[in-house]
């Protein structure tokens, strides 16, 4: 199988690369249009800031490419947020694959710290990414912005408020958490994605 990781100025590309190798898949890390179009599965990682990242994707003409992809694509963390329509982070217009916005967490109680960091559960899982899950599994999160619940919500997590910890629409899949850092559970999610 041909798995590509979209190469851009994201922080966790190597973590995703390592995670795929641990489950026996050696991905191609590339920003080359032809190579991406030929890949069977594509991963769109992301750690960083929305505005500068979106600007970079536009300069590289990767924005249109990503939107038009037909094979299964998995966005991770900032990758997922950039797949939405708009982000409050830097008031950024994003790719618009998911017609929803990205908002900043506003803690109401002192014990709700931002960023939301650490292991939390995913509930009401609705996508093939979570095939075989029979309980609310723990996964690893690090983020200060969130996607509200919407028609594309494929998993929900409760932190400050219930929000979307995964999204799904057609060939587009996305997780707010980091499967590449989520132990055995994360490996199952990556395997499920590769088996789509």
């Amino acid at each position: 199988m041909n798995v590509a990781i979209i190469k851009y100025n994201a922080g966790n590309i190597f973590s995703v690369d390592y995670a795929l190798k641990r489950i026996g898949v050696t991905p191609i890390i590339t920003s080359d249009k032809e190579t991406l179009l030929k890949a069977d599965k594509i991963i769109f990682p992301g750690v960083g800031e929305a505005e500068t990242t979106m600007k970079y994707l536009k300069e590289q003409n990767l924005d249109k490419l990503i939107k038009d992809l037909k094979q299964p694509l998995l966005g991770i963390c900032l990758g997922m947020q950039l797949m939405c329509k708009y982000s409050e982070e830097g008031n950024t217009d994003c790719l618009g694959i998911f017609d929803t916005e990205v908002k900043r967490f506003c803690p109401e109680r002192h014990k709700d710290k931002v960023p939301h960091m650490g292991w939390n559960t995913i509930e009401n899982t609705l996508s093939p990414l979570f095939k075989g899950f029979d309980k609310d599994e723990y996964v690893y999160f690090v983020h200060s912005y969130y996607v509200p619940l919407n028609e594309f919500t494929a998993a929900r997590t409760n932190y400050i408020l219930p929000y979307s910890s995964a999204l799904h629409k057609d060939n587009f899949y996305a997780t707010q958490f980091h499967p590449e850092k989520s132990g055995r559970t994360g490996e199952r999610i990556l395997r499920n994605f590769l088996e789509l």
């Binding site: 190597f14 973590s15 390592y18 995670a19 190798k21 641990r22 690893y140 590449e180 850092k181 989520s182 132990g183 055995r184 994360g186 490996e187």
Partner: peptide, 8 residues
């Protein structure tokens, strides 16, 4: 470590 450990 990064290559082999699957937690942060």
């Amino acid at each position: 470590i990064a290559a082999q450990i699957n937690i942060p």
